[in-house]
Computed example of a mutant assay.
Amino acid sequence: MSVRMAQRFARVERSATVALLETVQRLRRSGVEVLDLSGGEPDFPTPGVVVAEAVSALEGGDTHYTPSRGVPELLRAVADKLAVENGVHVDPATGVIVTPSAKQALFTALMTVLDPGDEVIVPTPAWVSYPAMAGLLGARAVSAELSAEDGFRLSRRVLEGLVTDRTRALVVNTPANPTGHVLDREEAEEIVAFAVDHDLVLVVDEIYEKIVYDGRVHLSLASLPGAAERTLTVNGFSKAYAMTGWRLGYLAGPEPLISQALKVQEHTVSCAASFVQRGGVAALTGTADDVAAMLKEYTVRRDMTVSALDALPGVTCTAPEGAFYAFADVRGTGLSSAAFAQRLLDEAAVTVAPGSAFGAGGEGYVRLSFAASREVLRGAGERLSRLAAPWAGN
């Protein structure tokens, strides 16, 4: 018997970052002391107030279905947060959906605006799942290749020429994974003008919004004139609040789009977990000090990581403006990004993500996460320094 698979899978590879995590877990089970800098998981514990609220909900019997949109308290907390912190105004009853993860919110957003054969522009290097999600929907991700020479800035000059009669949306990620770039107002205004002129939907991933450095301020595209009616904002709790395992996110935007996105939620996952949503309310309303403390520590780790990388022959690294990744240029080692990453794994038991996994513009770079502890970062730096000398011979 032959088993027929849907043709959509021919256009989609497995997640490179998830595959790396599985490799780390397998090696550790075999006794290898792997130092993992490939993933995007904060090593901090979830803030106590969040845990306490979820435990209280569990003990109180709050373990049943919720409304598909989410519990009213969390919908209101999200809308209040967007208004106060982001200048984005949505009706909590019609403009927000609470989802089981920001990843689910992103997939729901793309499903809402893309039909098979449609195109979505994705600035690259980019998180590996953007083009994969488009492929799963039968759509095509069109790469807008950014350059390290201008700090991976997104401009209209890069975007123009990519639009066809099938283009429906533009994905924007700020702060960006893997580059760490944070949009400034000039970029944001160009993006919005481009979307308005070409009648595109903006799908904006703001999952790293709380992690910005050196006095920068995160800017939400939906807050700009002309953007609100065409912007779907994706966010969640994993990165800012160290809640990766909780799987909680949200999608916000104009009612005409959100009302359709709700159908995706209702016919797939139904709702996010009830007690997890209660923890989400606590995260948004009672963790400002915890978030500030994590950002302070990320700043120290960022500077440690960049300094260690810049000390390696053939490697240069610009300090990221946001998120918790260093995107290091390894072209001077004479190795491809995949070969560099493989050598680190084979000879130093350190895992990093090769830049080639992040699409056009990523080759010649590797992504290192400094969401790991200082101890792990120091250990990885020492192992890398011992490998550095022979690179010149490659």
Rank of each mutant, 00 (worst) to 15 (best):
Q7M: 10
R8V: 14
R8Q: 12
E13H: 14
T17H: 05
T17F: 06
A19Y: 01
L21Y: 03
V24Q: 02
R28H: 03
R29E: 14
S30K: 05
D36H: 05
G40L: 07
E41D: 00
P42T: 00
V50G: 07
A54S: 15
E59Q: 12
Y65P: 14
T66K: 00
L75F: 11
A79H: 11
A83Q: 13
E85Y: 11
N86L: 15
N86H: 15
G87E: 15
V88Y: 09
H89P: 05
V90P: 11
V90K: 08
V90H: 07
P100Y: 05
A105K: 07
M111Y: 02
M111T: 12
T112I: 07
L114R: 02
D118R: 06
D118M: 02
D118S: 11
V120T: 00
I121D: 04
I121S: 02
V122P: 05
A126Q: 05
A126G: 08
Y130S: 06
Y130V: 09
M133Q: 05
L136V: 07
G138M: 04
A139T: 00
A139I: 03
S143I: 01
S147C: 01
S147T: 12
A148S: 14
G151A: 03
R153M: 01
S155T: 15
S155Q: 06
R156G: 13
T164L: 12
A169L: 07
L170Q: 06
N173V: 13
A176K: 07
T179R: 01
V182L: 15
L183G: 08
E189A: 13
V196M: 12
D197I: 10
L202G: 07
Y208T: 14
K210A: 12
V212P: 04
V212A: 06
Y213W: 08
G215Q: 09
R216N: 06
R216F: 03
E229I: 05
E229K: 13
F237V: 07
F237K: 05
S238C: 04
M243P: 03
T244W: 02
A252F: 10
A252C: 13
E255C: 10
V264L: 07
T268W: 09
A273H: 04
R278K: 15
A282L: 02
A282R: 05
L284G: 09
G286S: 15
A292Y: 01
T299F: 00
D303P: 06
L335F: 01
A339S: 13
F340L: 05
A341F: 03
Q342G: 11
R343W: 01
E347H: 04
E347C: 00
A348H: 01
G355S: 08
G355I: 02
G359A: 04
A360F: 01
A360P: 01
G364R: 00
S369V: 09
R374A: 15
R378L: 11
R378V: 15
G381P: 00
